[in-house]
Design a protein around this nucleic acid. Sequence first.
DNA 1: GTGAAAGCGCTAACAC
DNA 2: GTGTTAGCGCTTTCAC
Lengths: 364, 364
Amino acid sequence: MTPTIKDVAAHAGFSIATVSRAINAPHTVNPITLDKVRQSIDALNFRPSPLGRQLRGERTRLIGVVLPTLANPVFAECLQGIDDLASAQGYRLMLMTTQYDVDRERHAIETLREHRVEGLILTVADADTHPLLDQLDRDGLLYVLMHNDTVRRPSVSVDNRLAAYDGVRRLIAHGHRRILMLAGSFAASDRARQRHLGYTQAMQQAGLTPAPALEVDFNAEELAPSVLAHLTHGANRPTALFCSNDLLAMVVMRGLRRARLSIPQDMSILGFDGLAMGELLSPALASICAPNREIGCAAWQRLLARIGGAREDRGFAATSLALTLPHSVREGATITALASQVDLDRASPAYGLAAPAATEKPFA
Amino acid sequence: MTPTIKDVAAHAGFSIATVSRAINAPHTVNPITLDKVRQSIDALNFRPSPLGRQLRGERTRLIGVVLPTLANPVFAECLQGIDDLASAQGYRLMLMTTQYDVDRERHAIETLREHRVEGLILTVADADTHPLLDQLDRDGLLYVLMHNDTVRRPSVSVDNRLAAYDGVRRLIAHGHRRILMLAGSFAASDRARQRHLGYTQAMQQAGLTPAPALEVDFNAEELAPSVLAHLTHGANRPTALFCSNDLLAMVVMRGLRRARLSIPQDMSILGFDGLAMGELLSPALASICAPNREIGCAAWQRLLARIGGAREDRGFAATSLALTLPHSVREGATITALASQVDLDRASPAYGLAAPAATEKPFA
DNA sequence: GTGAAAGCGCTAACAC
DNA sequence: GTGTTAGCGCTTTCAC
């Protein structure tokens, strides 16, 4: 069906070797021959199969990409960054998603290895303790992590601890004293743990008491009553929430609204990721921004450099491991400066009921 | 470096044929032999290379996916749907994005063909007139379109015309009379044109005058003054906007806010796509929902069916082409029922200036 | 400047 | 039940 190099050779009246040379080293073949061969190639619409080349021991020019999910735009943005560069440079991407499941991570890596990818770009649940990554190191299969925040392995990310620290300090500077951190599953994210460290440090440094992160179910339609209770009741209810990622922040914002709390008057919100979409919210989401697309690009470049390096000089591969890209804090209308204490108890009894779109503001 | 079937054969003391059989048809080999071979496989950590199999004329179990961009979650959601099923069924995805560029579409398709993908899942700019798709038809390479709304080719989408019709009728039912449609580049999207047809039909049926779609630059920070003028000035300024996709709707919402218009009091907004994120906005975005993930899943299933069909019975491949999935209209707070005419001229002089977060409402 | 032939990793006849 | 061998599409010596 698809023409092979043989068909071209027969059509042009030369050997397959000559056809191969006409493609890969045109200058070594007689211009007249070259012309004929090219005509045959066009006539048959022939494109050399990468399979043959790959099997011949050539480079596969295949890169494996392993991501937790595409439902979170953070990873879609990274992927877009990788694809832009990789495509332009003649590499193909093989994509697998893991849904934060370690078994699926294992399966993805194995599958991609079978396909003889030249390298891997991945975001895993927990980079430090990942046995498969050790295996990759042993086997000399090159990889670069994205977002995983570890100094032990080749990676590209922001300094999650520092970024969280900066963000929480901003909240403190705005007068907030009782700040709570919300996170999805800690188990699924070494980033979240780093961010909690930053939160803790900022709090302690300001003489405030950090709290354990409150775990929130991402996918639930409503905030769990237990969570909501934490946010609204009691003497130590927070005035600001630091959410370990933007998607979580948005879910929390919706939950708070349903509980008749207005943002930022009743509660300030700070996210993490810097999703473009956050700026389209109202109020616009304040967030600690990671340059997601650039992280993808940088991961690609590092991987390419390592691949290139490995081909010439195997020694220097391990020189620089973690690349830290600068983060920024995006101010947004979800944070308010605290003029006075806010009485949240007034609003809380209504949670769980349908709430009107407009919420009353306790002061203004 | 990576062990081959030869290494296993040598290690186990059998021929490569036996090793191959041990892998692909275990029941045909002596249990004792089988055991030894398996031990060698484990010992060497051998995984058969798909390359060899593929070259041998076997199925590549590779599927090409061609998408405009991952920056729009619509496509990320589709991709997630595809990946969930495809991975589970032992297929690999090769992904390329095109940025709505026809040249890149061509390049992507060619590249994926070289890799001998068994089929293609794609969203292209314009399905009907696409010469490359005709080429695929001629060459018998199977493909399924997503979102492209055409009856001429295998595709999975909602009925864009009907969906838009339904949505606009909803606006009309809420009392809106002057409704404008906003779109990104028409050239880049056959969907947008279908949606405009639906808009036109709904308007005419209600005895209203449809307008040509207003093209809006997606990526601009602010709405263009000319666009804003259309929305705010003149006797026939609209009371509702139908945006050809949710991302556009969000951008427009931001632009309107900056121009000191409040939503939905000054302007109702209806989007298209049903992005989950839209529900997290405030006010929650009303939208015509396409089941994006399901579209991805269905596209995958159709492709698989066609691949299976093509392998047995080449005749029936062309039976059913377009699959239309049901859409729904998601009510949201961005649409208000029109009690009276809204005086927008008051708000418009301020556009282009920084606007306060809270906007006054002309009535309430 | 060109062709013949080996071999990449694997499967599938075909022998034994 | 197991081994031998040809061949998938291609690149690359090595002759000529």
